[in-house]
Design a protein around this nucleic acid. Sequence first.
DNA 1: TGGTTCGTACCTCCATCGTGGTATTTCACA
DNA 2: TGTGAAATACCACGATGGAGGTACGAACCA
Lengths: 221, 221
Amino acid sequence: MQNALPENASVLVIDDHPLFRKGVLELLASTPHLKPAGEADTGEKGVELAHRLQPDLILLDLHMRSGQDGIATLRKMRAEGIEARIIVLTVSDAPRDLVDAMRSGADGYLLKDTDPELMLHYLQESLYGKTVLSEGLAQMLVSTLSQDPGGPIRQLADLTDRETTILYCLSQGLSNKMIARELDIMESTVKVHIRNLLKKLKFHSRVEAAVWAVSQGVSSR
Amino acid sequence: MQNALPENASVLVIDDHPLFRKGVLELLASTPHLKPAGEADTGEKGVELAHRLQPDLILLDLHMRSGQDGIATLRKMRAEGIEARIIVLTVSDAPRDLVDAMRSGADGYLLKDTDPELMLHYLQESLYGKTVLSEGLAQMLVSTLSQDPGGPIRQLADLTDRETTILYCLSQGLSNKMIARELDIMESTVKVHIRNLLKKLKFHSRVEAAVWAVSQGVSSR
DNA sequence: TGGTTCGTACCTCCATCGTGGTATTTCACA
DNA sequence: TGTGAAATACCACGATGGAGGTACGAACCA
């Protein structure tokens, strides 16, 4: 990042939506100081291209249908020593996504509905070393954190596979009996898993866990 | 629809993402038989433009941040006699969105991550009068319907103000005791409201109601 | 005036849930 | 080879939730 070149910087676009890539690439192509370096429709290809093309800037989609998602891709890149500026480009304004992205080494977080002119401005700012966030996100982040001072930080990662599966069932509104039937185990076992996941996630009831799971988009493993 | 012109058809794009509009419009511009008629970033402007430009085909985003959303826009257009082919273009593969769109008068439902070539193919098919659905959606729709034949149509509107308030509390994961404290009424009264709303919405438990409420974005009245 | 809806409150009864244990098997890892 | 984590299963008990009922006052409307 220390050697970012604001003049004629190359940009790699990683997004699984061909039409959106098209829009971004055209925008880049029509701009003097930026040039499209390449595009990828999955995280895996993106990492590979990042190594090969050594772009100055990487635009990365968060939620991609196939293969690893944006966060995993981002972590992989940083782990493998890629030092390009990386800006997450997404439709999600969920605090969780923003926090995850910034913690995983993103240099910016922009919403896809950003005006193209503003987007270009952000990209330039980023190449100069600034951290860029779409309007309102910084404030949202602050208010989210300040609303819940020292509140528990719940982490899906703390759960075992089985607990995650059962949390998913909870988020579908299933009763213990139904979960037991679904997974073909005893209801007593279901209770044990629920007890453990409630403890880990610091919830007081299945309802709290269920609505949280929905907001996290928990899926079965 | 009966007078669709597959040759040199004009297309209106309604989407609140500038870059995505850019991608779509460029795709259209580079295609012989289609020409961009205009673009709008809100449903309201879209309806207005649809009247003024009389396009042959309208591409409509479902979830737009500001103003009326895609479904409302679609219904308004049909109600006001707009006969253009209307294809919903969205990231959502939720059965509910698909069903709502088709019931509201859409002629097609395509996912935004569709390959551009395939997208063009679909647009042509639509102009010839065919109903177009992205791959897998038709099957998903069928399986959804067959899983749940004549399944209940839940309507927030059926609830009284008090029930809505309590449903909101449920969606926050509160227990009956907590709801009673929050609203300063007896726990027994809370139970009555919950019983009534469960009955109206045809749910079997508070958890089902809570996760549904979250997905509906229920807010307190 | 009478009928209806809504919100409130109380009651009982039984199912479900949550918490506290203990115990066994399997599997990976040191 | 032992150790620990994970998943399974069972028991018991108290708390919570859901279904059924009745009742009363306020607001509204015909």
